[in-house]
C-alpha cells in the first residue's frame, strides 16, 4: 500500500466504521421492527462502501462495480421481504414492537 491509498483507506475506513457502528447500535437498541430493518440496511451500506474501497485500492473497479450492483439488488429483496413480514405483524397486533413477538419460547 502506498501513501496515497493509505490515506484513501483511512478516510474511507473512518466512515465505514461510523456507518457500521450506527447500524449495529440501531439494531441493538431499537424495539421497533422498521428501525431494525433500517439498522440492517445501514450495516449493508457500510459493507458496500468497504467493497468499493477494496475495488479502488486493488485497482479492480469493474469487479467491485459488479459486486456492488448485485449487493444493492439483493439488499432490496431482503428489505422488501422484511417489510412485508412487519406489515403482517402489524395487521395481527396493531403494533410494530418486537416485544409483541414473544409466543415462541423454550
Amino acid at each position: 500500500m502506498n501513501a496515497n491509498s493509505w490515506q484513501l483507506f483511512s478516510t474511507f475506513g473512518f466512515f465505514i466504521i461510523l456507518l457500521f457502528a450506527c447500524g449495529a447500535y440501531c439494531l441493538v437498541v431499537t424495539r421497533n421492527m422498521i428501525r431494525a430493518i433500517i439498522g440492517i440496511e445501514l450495516l449493508i451500506k457500510a459493507v458496500t462502501l468497504l467493497i468499493i474501497l477494496a475495488g479502488k485500492i486493488t485497482g479492480r473497479t469493474s469487479l467491485a462495480q459488479g459486486l456492488v450492483m448485485t449487493i444493492i439488488v439483493i439488499e432490496v429483496v431482503i428489505a422488501a421481504t422484511a417489510a412485508g413480514i412487519a406489515l403482517w405483524v402489524f395487521r395481527h397486533t396493531d403494533s410494530l414492537d418486537v416485544r409483541s413477538l414473544r409466543s415462541l419460547k423454550g
Partner: peptide, 17 residues
C-alpha cells in the same frame, strides 16, 4: 399466523447479520 411471522422475522434478522 403470528407465530410463523415471528419465526420468519427472527430468522431474517439473524440471517441478515
Amino acid at each position: 399466523s403470528l407465530e410463523s411471522l415471528e419465526g420468519a422475522f427472527k430468522y431474517l434478522i439473524l440471517s441478515a447479520v
